[in-house]
């Protein structure tokens, strides 16, 4: 294989991993910006999306089943997320560290429930035939470069979701409210914004996006009760690098982490790459502890 094709292939891989991180971390970052809490059960929303895709494909087989599964997973995970916000997170939001622990408890319960319902081994979701191709380049200096359709599909979905969320935040009234609460909760509340409802809506939206990401995960590998866990730790690191509740920051941070992982894995194996990623994050916060995008604020405690 051509050297440059191999490198470009890894860069492409990095982008497709990054787009999964974007979808997984978006909800975390938005809710973190609003409420300063992290939902440790967010990975289980990915898992839930995967299982919802599996069940949808049982009912709607055929080439377009996956397109039906995506809205189903979005709504399903959104509802579960909304309930979680209402029942657990909102009650504890004054104590962020305790929220972390309580939502970890939720994640354990959801994992075990999945294990009891679907078995520990996991279920397979077969990608539809229109996603089974690989774009191969046979000539020129990029000969030997293979781009699987599923990976391209992920990139497209992530781009569309990102575009829609950006439009929602910047062009709609709901988005205006979200930004207002993000910047100054008491003032926004005093102006008549129902901050409580905004928290709930953003949280449900974020978990819905995670559910959508779960459908895509299901195309890449088997859906197991712990499938979310392998993506959620990098997603947490994305939140740390991204800065508070910033869409642009989250996107850039996802790209940094995705590309870093993909490129470093050329030289070292996966486990060492994980250590180096952590070292990278710790070095990064030495330079920019506030993350890539700093939101100007007069608040002392971020």
């Amino acid at each position: 294989m051509h050297e440059s094709a191999f490198l470009l292939g890894q860069v492409f891989n990095g982008f497709s991993v990054a787009s999964l991180f974007i979808l997984a971390a978006l909800g975390l970052a938005l809710s973190f910006g609003l409420m300063r809490v992290i939902n440790m059960a967010h990975g289980e929303m990915l898992m839930l999306g995967g299982y919802l895709a599996y069940m949808t494909l049982q009912i709607v087989p055929g080439p377009l089943g996956i397109l039906v599964a995506m809205p189903v997973a979005f709504v399903g995970a959104g509802i579960v997320g909304g309930f979680l916000e209402f029942a657990v997170i909102h009650r504890l939001s004054a104590r962020p560290l305790d929220t972390l622990l309580a939502t970890w408890g939720v994640s354990l319960v959801l994992q075990q429930a999945a294990r009891n319902m679907f078995g520990a081994i996991g279920v397979e979701v077969t990608a539809p035939t229109w996603l089974n191709h690989t774009v191969s380049i046979h000539s020129g200096f990029l000969s030997g470069l293979d781009l699987p359709d599923t990976r391209i599909f992920i990139l497209i979905v992530a781009a569309i979701v990102l575009g829609l969320i950006a439009a929602l935040l910047n062009k709609t009234r709901l988005g205006l409210y979200v930004r207002a609460v993000n910047q100054d909760r008491p003032t926004a509340a005093a102006m008549g914004v129902n901050a409580r409802l905004i928290d709930l809506a953003v949280f449900a939206l974020g978990t819905g996006v995670a559910g959508l990401a779960g459908v895509i995960l299901a195309l890449l590998g088997p859906v197991t009760p712990t499938v979310g866990q392998s993506y959620i730790v990098p997603a947490f690191l994305v939140v740390i690098l991204g800065g508070l509740g910033s869409l642009v920051g989250t996107t850039i941070a996802s790209l940094i982490i995705g590309l870093f992982t993909a490129l470093i894995e050329i030289f070292v194996d996966v486990s060492v790459a994980q250590v180096l990623l952590l070292v990278f994050v710790i070095l990064f916060i030495q330079i920019r502890p506030q993350g890539v995008i700093t939101v100007r604020t007069r608040a002392l405690e971020g």
Binding site: V88, R95, D98, L101, A102, G105, L108, V109
Partner: peptide
């Protein structure tokens, strides 16, 4: 899981 949620 329940212990986590209830305790905190």
């Amino acid at each position: 899981g329940a212990l986590f949620i209830l305790a905190v």
